[in-house]
Amino acid sequence: RPLPSPQMLWLLFLSLPGLGGSVPSFPGPGSGTQQGGPVGAHNAPTGRWPWQVSVRQYNKELELWQHLCGGSLIHHQWVLTAAHCTQREDWEAYGLRVQVGQLRLYDHDTLTTVTKIVRHPKFNQSLSAEGGADVALLKLEAPVTLSERIGLVPLPPASLRVPERKMCWVTGWGYSSLGVTLLWPYQLQEVMVPIVGNEVCNQRYQNSSTNTGQIIKDDMLCAGSEGQDSCQGDSGGPLVCSWEGTWVQVGIVSWGYSCGHRDFPGVYARVMSFISWIRKFVPPPS
Rank of each mutant, 00 (worst) to 15 (best):
R1I: 05
S5W: 02
P6V: 12
P6F: 03
L9M: 11
G21A: 11
P29I: 08
T33E: 06
A41E: 06
P45T: 14
G47H: 07
G47R: 09
R48Y: 12
W51V: 09
W51P: 07
V53H: 00
S54F: 00
E61F: 02
E63W: 01
E63H: 08
W65A: 07
G70I: 11
I74W: 05
W78I: 07
H84D: 06
E92N: 14
G95H: 07
R97I: 03
Q99G: 11
V100Q: 10
Q102T: 14
L103A: 07
L105D: 03
T112K: 05
T112D: 06
H120N: 02
N124A: 08
D134E: 10
L138S: 13
V144T: 06
E148R: 02
G151P: 08
P156E: 03
G172K: 06
G174N: 14
G174H: 14
V191P: 04
M192W: 01
N202P: 11
Q203S: 14
S208N: 13
I216V: 15
D219S: 13
G224C: 08
D229G: 15
D234Q: 01
D234H: 03
L239C: 08
C241Y: 01
W243F: 10
E244F: 07
V248T: 11
V248K: 06
G251C: 07
V253K: 01
Y257S: 13
Y257H: 12
H261G: 03
G266H: 10
